[in-house]
Amino acid sequence: MGKFSERGHQGGVLWGVKGQPTVLQEANVRVDLNREWVSHWPFAPTDHRSQFTPKRVTIETPAGEVVEQLDEPRDSFAGYVMETPWSNAQVAYFAGYTMWTYLTSPFILARPGVLTDEIEPWAERLGDGCA
């Protein structure tokens, strides 16, 4: 397995609450299917890109010059509340770990050694009384 890319629209109330309503609104995402690594670009309103790993996040120019760096990014959220704004590197961390999980899950489940068993069917009752 290699890398996987997608072009996406990321929206929702969270980005505005964090002071970053449009930074990843229209962005490309590239994930590594073998290790926890993600890149988003453009990091609006610039043409910068992010590089995410669990231990380090950077925001870089297209030439690879680091303009913002955050080591041990998870630790940077200590003491934050819902209304605490995020830096670009913190946005890159959150978006990186979430998109890596979302986009790699189908591939991870197809790896050798992953076993599944079918369970008994489950019927849900819908609100109108139909099953």
Rank of each mutant, 00 (worst) to 15 (best):
R7C: 07
L14G: 00
H40Y: 09
F107D: 06
F94P: 00
S50A: 09
Y93N: 13
M82D: 09
M82A: 14
N28K: 13
T58Y: 01
Y97A: 01
N88R: 12
L24W: 01
E26R: 13
I119S: 10
T84V: 07
P73G: 03
C130K: 12
T116E: 04
F77D: 01
D71L: 08
L126P: 00
V29N: 02
P54W: 01
R74G: 12
D71Y: 00
W122G: 03
L109Q: 14
A63V: 10
V67G: 05
L109Y: 10
E36V: 11
A89S: 14
R7I: 12
F4N: 02
I59L: 14
V114L: 10
H9Y: 11
N88E: 10
V29M: 08
D32N: 15
R49A: 11
E68P: 00
T104Q: 04
N28I: 08
G129M: 07
Q25A: 14
W86F: 13
H9A: 12
D128T: 06
L115Q: 15
S39F: 03
D128S: 02
A89L: 09
D47N: 11
E26A: 12
A123I: 15
Y97K: 09
E124M: 15
E6R: 10
H48F: 12
G113H: 06
T22F: 11
Y80W: 00
G96V: 09
E124W: 11
M1C: 07
N28M: 12
N88A: 14
S39G: 04
V57Q: 04
E120P: 01
S39D: 01
E36P: 00
N28R: 13
W122L: 15
A27M: 09
G113R: 11
P42N: 05
Y102E: 12
